[in-house]
Amino acid sequence: MVSFIQKITMAACLIGTFQVSVQAQTTPTYAFIEKISLPTGDGKWDYLKMDGERERLFVSHFDRVHVIDLTTNKQIGEITGLKGVHGIGLAKELNKGYITNGTDNTITVFDYNTFKVLQTIPVTGKKADAVMYDKGTKRIFVFNNGSGDAVAIDAVTDKVIGTVTMGGAPEFAVANEKGSIFNNNEDTNEIFEIDAKTLKVKNKYTVAPAGGVPTGIAYDASTNRLFSVCRKPQALVVMDASTGKIVQSLPIGGGVDAVVYEKELKLIMTSNGEGNVTIIHQDSADTYSIVQTLTTKPGQKTMVHRGTTHRIYLSGADYQADGKTLVPGTFGVYVYGPTVKQ
């Protein structure tokens, strides 16, 4: 005769099996789809920027930014004459874009419709790196990796209005659209919470000892969770954005740079320069599990995703036998996506 306790245990096991089965059915397997070749220029690459609404992808490439129409996967524009380009920020409501030039610490402002350069803004600091637009304040934030600060620009007037002093080496940043910007700091192994209006540091949260040097960062508004990817040790650190509490950490591949959060599929994906993407499922706000290690190519460490198709885009080029020298004319964007219909 089955006791009440045994019935409860059996029911719990069945529910757990059902949850695993549902997750297995709804979590797709990712695979390579195609390469978008961009053979002009053989310099280094960094950030990509996605505009899913207008079906455009902006790709940084040393002295230029390629603009791709995602309905055709063809280049429709090229912004040239840049100097050590790193990041691209879009103020779409103002029909403008902003590009960081790390070599001479300037910001190139371009017209979003024509891709024509409007002006170049010099900013204080060293190695202008990440850049983002904050809708709430209509400000562009430029993070200087070499001087430990961020410059705020009024996107309406394109005038510099202030500086955020942090120290260390600021990297990727993300906004919660509630007045705060979260920025990874490579030197201090911390996430800085910045008040977008006052330009003051509100909080500093350490990723140690769960993770080491933080690079990419993403945010889930529904659970108020930050996803910071780290090197040495290499890990995805999941953090409560309100308290800075680390709720879980998971191992990822080496040489990570970027991370994206796919909210519909509840996936966190990390692009690892060693040649793979770690794909992690969000089981709940505080529970995460690795579901796939996607093989890519060495050097593909920057990434964005497109929510409507759930595809991810990584930039890169082929290397010669020494593993360091680029093969001329091989640069492009590699597209990966689900292999099962959603």
Rank of each mutant, 00 (worst) to 15 (best):
S3M: 02
I5M: 07
I5G: 00
V20C: 10
S21Q: 07
Q23I: 15
Q23S: 15
Q25L: 12
Y30D: 00
A31P: 02
F32M: 05
K35S: 08
I36D: 01
G41R: 02
D42Q: 08
D46V: 05
D46M: 00
M50T: 08
G52L: 07
G52P: 12
G52Q: 10
E53G: 12
L57D: 01
H61V: 01
V67N: 03
I68R: 00
I68Y: 05
T71E: 14
T71M: 07
T71F: 07
N73G: 07
Q75A: 15
I76K: 06
L82Q: 11
K83I: 10
K83A: 15
G89H: 05
A91M: 09
K92R: 15
K92N: 13
E93P: 04
G97L: 06
I99N: 09
D104L: 00
N105P: 09
F115H: 13
V117S: 02
L118S: 10
T120A: 05
I121L: 01
A128W: 03
G136W: 05
G136C: 08
I140A: 02
N144S: 05
N145Q: 12
N145G: 13
N145D: 11
G146P: 03
G146R: 00
S147K: 01
D149E: 14
A152P: 05
D154G: 06
A155N: 04
T157M: 00
D158I: 01
G162I: 07
G162N: 05
T163A: 05
G167H: 10
A169S: 15
N176Q: 05
G179D: 07
G179C: 10
F182A: 06
N185P: 08
N185D: 15
E186H: 10
T188N: 14
N189G: 09
E190I: 12
A196T: 04
A196K: 01
L199N: 03
V201P: 05
K204I: 11
Y205V: 00
V207C: 12
Y219C: 03
A221G: 00
S222F: 00
T223A: 04
K232N: 13
P233E: 04
L236C: 00
L236A: 03
S242P: 07
T243E: 02
L250G: 04
V256H: 09
A258V: 13
V259I: 03
M269C: 06
S271W: 04
G275E: 02
G275H: 01
D283S: 13
S284Y: 03
D286G: 14
D286H: 10
D286N: 13
S289V: 13
I290Q: 14
Q292C: 08
V304H: 02
T308D: 15
I312E: 05
L314C: 13
L314K: 11
S315D: 12
G316E: 03
G316L: 04
Y319T: 03
L326N: 06
V327D: 04
G329F: 03
V333G: 03
Y334H: 15
Y334K: 04
Y336N: 06
K341Y: 12
Q342T: 14
